[in-house]
Simulated scan of single mutants.
Amino acid sequence: MTTYDLIDEAVIDAPADAVWKALVSEFRGAKEWWVPSNTFHAVSGEPDAVGGRTGVVVHTKGADKGGLKLRFTSRTVAVEPGRRLDIEYVDGVFRGPSTFRLEPLADDRTRLSMHFTGSPHGWLKILAKVADLGAEHSKGTLAAFESLNRRLSAEKATAVER
C-alpha cells in the first residue's frame, strides 16, 4: 500500500497568532488562501477543538474548474493553540495523521509546516499507482503557504503604514 510521509514548510512574514487565526479560519471554510487547490468546511464541531471534523475537497484542476475532486474528512485529535494542530483523516479518499506546526521566529515571522502521513483509500489507491500524488500534495500545499504569506505580509505592511 502507498503511504505518503511528507513535510512541507514555509516561513510566513507574520506572527504565529495571525498564522494560527488564518489556518483555523481556512478550515472553517473561509476560502481565502488555500484555493484554488483545496477548500474546507466544518462538518461538526470546531477545527481547533478536539473532536472537530472538517471536510476537505482537493480540486485537481482548481475550484470550479471541473476535474477530479478528492474528498475526505479530518478529525482534530490534539490542539496547542497558536502552535500545533494534529488531525487524522478518518473518511474519504485518505486515511492517516497529519500535523500543522507553527514556530515563532525573529522579526514577527513564523515557520509553518504540515507533516502529512496519509494513505490513499478506495478508488484513489488505483490512481496512486500511476500518478505522483505526493508531489501534487506538496505542490498544492506550498502554493497555499505562499498565498498565505502574500496575504499576511500585505496585512502586516498595511498595519505598519497606519
Rank of each mutant, 00 (worst) to 15 (best):
F100E: 07
D107Q: 12
A144T: 06
K31C: 05
L133N: 13
S138T: 14
S98F: 07
A42K: 09
R95P: 02
R111S: 06
T158N: 07
G92R: 10
G96A: 04
H115R: 15
S153Q: 09
F94S: 06
V56G: 03
L142M: 12
T110W: 02
T73F: 01
A22L: 10
I126H: 14
V50M: 10
P97K: 10
G67L: 06
I7K: 12
V24W: 00
F40M: 08
S74I: 10
F145G: 01
W34M: 02
E80G: 02
K156D: 04
G82W: 07
A106N: 15
H121I: 04
I7V: 15
D5F: 01
T60F: 09
G67D: 12
A18S: 13
E88N: 11
L102R: 01
P81Q: 13
A128N: 09
A18G: 10
A14I: 03
E161R: 13
A63W: 15
D64N: 14
V24I: 09
I87M: 14
N38T: 07
E146F: 05
A18E: 14
G51E: 06
A143L: 09
P81C: 01
L105H: 13
T110D: 02
Y89V: 06
P97E: 05
A10W: 03
V77C: 05
S147Q: 14
G122T: 04
H121V: 04
P36L: 09
L152R: 08
A14Q: 05
T141L: 08
V93F: 10
T73Y: 01
G122R: 09
V77H: 05
P81G: 04
M1Q: 08
A106F: 14
T54Q: 07
E103Q: 15
D108H: 13
M1D: 12
T141R: 11
T76G: 00
G51Y: 03
E103V: 15
T117H: 13
W123M: 12
L68Q: 14
M1H: 11
L70E: 02
N149Y: 08
G82N: 07
A42Y: 03
A49W: 00
L112Y: 13
S44A: 12
A22E: 12
G118R: 02
F27A: 00
V93Q: 15
A22Y: 10
R151W: 14
A63P: 03
L102I: 06
K61I: 01
S119P: 00
K125H: 08
E9I: 01
A18D: 15
A49R: 11
